[in-house]
């Protein structure tokens, strides 16, 4: 499990963030004292650091700079300041990403996942997902089954990818739409219906009939 270190002085927010990250499959570490923060942070040997800017004793920007001297660990700066200049300063100090409070949690998760993926170089493996009946090739935007393959549009790929990630679970239409919006495809209910139908036709073409089941009033499930 990936270790994420939360450096945040507000205890309540820290705990909630910890619960949230743990729910989403990460191991969340925290530090409670900030008088020796740089050493404490380095000692935790985390895979990624969520670093608040406004901290007691030393501010986040300075800490970030100091960490960068010895470590390449991905750092996401978290702050309530939101001007372009603040963002630039943080990035200049070696932060990899910049998130403003109150954060959009989906986006925060996406940034964490993106950074971890990049530092791990697992990206190559992630490009192809084996789903037993078929292989989803994300980089080529294709479904592959034995010899046959079929191309997907951007939205179809995103929908199928989301269903694959939640394989065996019921996924509601709202969840799909939410996911698509967060990845910047602003589709509406009708478009989703159209895309679902097309996706099913394509799956049928390569012999995967009824692999996506409709649960009336609940959503879809990928078997």
């Amino acid at each position: 499990m990936k270790k994420i270190l939360i450096v945040e002085d507000d205890q309540k927010l820290r705990n909630e963030l910890k619960i949230y990250l743990e729910k989403n499959g990460y191991e969340a570490l925290t530090i409670e004292k900030f008088d020796n923060s740089i050493q404490d942070i380095l000692d935790k040997k985390a895979d990624l650091i969520l670093l608040d800017i406004n901290l007691p004793y030393l501010d986040g920007e300075y800490i970030c700079k100091e960490i960068r001297k010895t470590s390449n660990v991905p750092i996401i700066m978290v702050t309530s300041r939101d001007s372009e200049l603040d963002e630039l300063i943080s990035l200049n100090n070696g932060a990899d990403q910049y998130v403003t409070k109150p954060y959009n949690l989906q986006i925060l998760l996406a940034k964490i996942a993106g950074l971890l993926k990049r530092t791990e170089n697992t990206a190559i493996n992630q490009n192809k997902i084996d789903c037993r009946e078929f292989i989803l090739n994300i980089s080529k935007s294709m479904i592959e089954k034995e010899e046959k393959q079929i191309e997907l549009t951007k939205n179809e790929l995103k929908i199928l990818h989301f269903l694959v990630l939640r394989k065996g679970q019921i996924v509601s239409r709202d969840e799909i739409i939410n996911y698509l919006w967060d990845s910047e495809s602003f589709i509406d209910d009708n478009t989703l219906t159209v895309n679902m139908t097309r996706l099913r036709t394509k799956l049928e073409e390569i012999g995967l009939k009824d692999i996506i089941e409709t649960k009336r009033g609940q959503g879809y499930i990928l078997k």
Partner: peptide
């Protein structure tokens, strides 16, 4: 003040999310 007020909002949103 605005930066201060964003803190409790962020915390509230986290609580809601959980």
């Amino acid at each position: 003040w605005i930066h201060e007020i964003k803190m409790p909002i962020a915390t509230s949103k986290m609580i809601i999310e959980n």
